[in-house]
């Protein structure tokens, strides 16, 4: 089961570490960085069912966060 509640002891620290890691990357570099990061984390998670659940959740944004695209 994909965890829905917070699983991080220091959520702000982790969020900022991820965002800051993208500093200075152009769009293409950022996509490549994210791809490597996702693969690393997916391997760490290890559970295919959980990964597929996360893929579905990411594909269907529940609510538009940004400027326009729903």
């Amino acid at each position: 089961m994909l965890k829905r509640t917070s699983n991080l002891a220091r959520p702000d620290e982790v969020y900022n570490a991820i965002v800051d890691a993208h500093k200075g990357l152009d769009d293409e570099q950022a996509r490549a960085f994210d791809a490597r990061l996702i693969l690393l984390l997916a391997n760490h998670v290890g559970d295919e069912a959980v990964i597929r659940e996360a893929l579905a959740a990411a594909a269907a944004p529940a609510i538009d966060g940004g400027n326009g695209v729903v």
Binding site: K3, R4, T5, S6, N7, L8, P11, D12, Y15, I18, V19, H22, K23, L25, D27, A30, A57, P61, A62, I63, D64, G65, G66
Partner: peptide, 26 residues
């Protein structure tokens, strides 16, 4: 910078259905 906006908006997009994302909204 662009990636920080992308992550921010992704956090907001997940917030309604995923409580973990709510705790990231700053």
């Amino acid at each position: 910078f662009p990636a920080s906006r992308v992550f921010r908006d992704a956090t907001l997009a997940l917030a309604r259905d995923f409580p973990f994302a709510r705790s990231l909204i700053n």
